[in-house]
């Protein structure tokens, strides 16, 4: 099914969306750390060079300066790779999160699908770090359409945001347009036996798994949890109540990522249910093509399908 759909990388949404919003009257300033070609932020520089500041390969200075810039009324977008955003964690904490400044970090090459570059370039912990920062809204788009909607929402909403985009071209899911609403899970298909909660490129793979499972007689609900923080606890509780089992699928360490956050919410709910976790399991990545690395990690439709079968077997 996925092969028939158009494909695009979520990182492609950033530059063109910023250009359009600036043309429509936003007050955007972009700060960049020498990766604007890859993140697509340079598209903005081409049209608004006076609103684009290069900080060289110096993310810490860039992030603190972004905080300062935001105090003068501008909406500041900082772009780099996810692993290099991590390089400025203390600056994110002191210069952005604590003072709650209007800075949007849109970082590409998130997760292990950076592929060939190997372990050092593969951020398996980025949104755990950002989710640990008070005041941050944290989002992971499932496709380029949703990425664009998230960038639009971030620019339109004051406060610190982190959006993790990806390097590889992945199938477009929202062919009829975005359905993104911050803090709300998006139900992509309904089912009664189990719920898959996914974000990023695992959403597409979870839909593929759900189709196979449906044919095998297992009815699957799929929730796209595009907003990691604030988490849509109501949608999780409804999933537990309606389907009695949950699988969380993500391109991130499970022990600190969406899986851990969903497990906390479910454990605190009135109806805890069995859960399984598909993600990076307490390890760093390695080189290979992006889909090979995902396969090594078990981040495939088959991996999700097996987790669903395990969790269904644990019901009652």
């Amino acid at each position: 099914m996925t092969t028939t759909l158009p494909s695009a990388a979520t990182r492609e949404a950033l530059g063109p969306t910023l250009v359009r919003m600036q043309q429509e009257g936003a007050d955007i300033v972009v700060v960049d750390a020498d990766l604007g070609k890859s993140t697509s932020a340079r598209t903005f520089r081409d049209v608004f060079p006076e609103r684009f500041f290069s900080f060289g390969v110096a993310e810490q200075n860039m992030i603190s300066a972004a905080g300062g810039l935001a105090t003068t009324g501008h909406t500041v977008v900082a772009s780099t790779f996810a692993v290099f955003a991590e390089h400025a964690f203390d600056q994110l904490r002191m210069s952005v999160a604590q003072p709650r400044l209007n800075v949007k970090i849109v970082a590409s090459h998130g997760g292990v699908s950076t592929g060939e570059d190997g372990a050092s370039a593969q951020s398996v912990e980025d949104y755990a770090l950002f989710s640990s920062l008070v005041n941050f809204t944290v989002c992971v788009p499932a496709d380029v359409v949703e990425a664009q909607a998230m960038v639009e929402a971030a620019i339109a909403t004051p406060g610190p945001w982190y959006i993790r985009t990806g390097r590889p071209k992945i199938p477009v899911i929202y062919t009829d347009g975005p359905r993104f609403e911050v803090g709300k899970a998006n139900m992509l298909r309904d089912g009664s036996d189990v719920t898959i909660v996914a974000c990023g490129l695992l959403v597409g793979r979870s839909l593929d798994a759900a189709e196979v499972l449906e044919r095998a007689g297992i009815s699957v609900r799929v929730l796209n949890m595009g907003t990691i923080r604030p988490l849509d606890v109501a949608a999780l509780e409804a999933a537990a109540r309606d389907t009695g089992a949950i699988v969380v699928a993500e391109e991130h360490l499970t022990h600190s990522g969406l899986g851990a956050m969903c497990a906390q919410a479910i454990a605190a709910s009135t109806q805890p249910v069995p859960m399984e976790f598909v993600g990076v399991n307490d390890r760093y990545g390695e080189s290979g093509t992006w889909d090979e690395v995902l396969e090594i990690m078990g981040l495939t439709a088959e991996g999700v399908e097996q987790a669903v079968r395990r969790v269904v077997a644990r019901k009652r």
Binding site: I63, A65, G68, S95
Partner: peptide, 18 residues
Amino acid sequence: MGLSFGLGIRLGMRLNQT
């Protein structure tokens, strides 16, 4: 961090023609 933060403020002011 202060020199960076101040630098960002001044860049923003410059854009605002302050």
